[in-house]
Design a protein around this nucleic acid. Structure first.
Lengths: 187, 187
DNA sequence: TATTGTTATACTCTATAACTATA
DNA sequence: TATAGTTATAGAGTATAACAATA
């Protein structure tokens, strides 16, 4: 398929460069998506090291900066997680004094979420870092290619919006067959 | 942007468009990567429904078809997971009679992994489905754009190969602060 | 009755550590 | 000592269900 390297990757007597196995082994979107996501998560996490903030927490903070007063359900939908999970993340951020929950006056079921001054301060400080990290991800490409990649990704995502929901890529409960129940148990 | 549906999904007389929140809220690669991965996982999982096979199991099967006799560590490295995890997946597939472990004669520590005839048969049957699914993912794009997207992704992934390792995007053990230990406990 | 959010719980995924066998 | 693999364990992520408050 790709034929990138000459060296073998079962690597006996690989005494020179090209010792590293081929990273990209096929050109399937699903595979590339997983690798791409791995890379992005790793780079973002690295850039947030020491801040004690996760990627999703950052996403929430960014969202509250953009849409102050948003409620939890909409927050969840916006960043692509389940509402329960959004509640938990907000819990964490609230416990750290970064986010504030207010009861919506008009609809007392809903919680208006806002950054506290402290949260806003953190947001301001982290923003350039985050921007730089995201640019660094695309560094292997030329500027016009970077824009192109983003455009194409956006179109694929919006074109498949129906599938862009959390948890759809997991096994259903109980569908996992506990090995050992089956035939072969290892000795 | 996408105008996916006019109807609401919480079914409360939403009589106009723009009821659905915008799916793509920013153009940050890290965000797009997560959404793109969500979509791919969802579509692949859907296409495998009923087979009782997960995306990673399929990846292992595909890899063993391409590189028969590969050992577990290299398998893990190839598809981007940790060796322990590879062992577990192979466990599952072995229990179902799809994969076979042989002790390597030259190095008796290593296990040569191969598809069983049954595994190969499954692979042959699933392959066209998988191909179609991956094409369907890119359906929103024109053919030449599809190739372009793949090329760009490959380059970004290979350019950031250092970061393409499993688990790099998670919290370290114990770094998660159990809320409730902190100040604000909810009432 | 429907919706927002919370609490409780449990399952899946996947990493770390310790161990065995082999080199 | 170093490497391939396994077993054990546990933590992170995230779903489901039941509930409370409000609409």
């Amino acid at each position: 398929m790709s034929a990138r390297r000459t060296a073998s990757h079962n690597g006996r007597t690989v005494d020179r460069a090209a010792a590293a196995p081929p990273l990209v082994i096929n050109r399937f979107p699903a595979y590339l998506a997983r690798r791409f996501q791995q890379i992005c998560a790793a780079m973002v996490t690295e850039s947030l090291a020491g801040e004690g903030i996760t990627q999703l927490q950052l996403a929430v903070i960014a969202c509250l900066d953009t849409v102050p007063g948003i409620d939890q359900r909409r927050l969840a939908e916006t960043i692509g997680i389940v509402p329960v999970n959004a509640g938990q993340i907000v819990d964490e951020l609230e416990a750290r004094g970064l986010v504030e929950r207010r009861t919506n006056g008009a609809d007392r079921r809903a919680r208006e979420l806002r950054l506290t001054p402290q949260g806003l301060k953190l947001r301001r400080r982290l923003r350039p870092h985050n921007l730089a990290t995201n640019q660094r991800i695309l560094a292997p490409l030329k500027p016009n290619e970077q824009e192109l990649l983003i455009d194409l990704l956006v179109r694929v995502i919006e074109g498949n919006a129906v599938y862009a929901r959390p948890g759809a890529g997991r096994r259903k409960r109980g569908s996992r067959q506990s090995i050992g129940e089956s035939t072969a148990t290892r000795t």
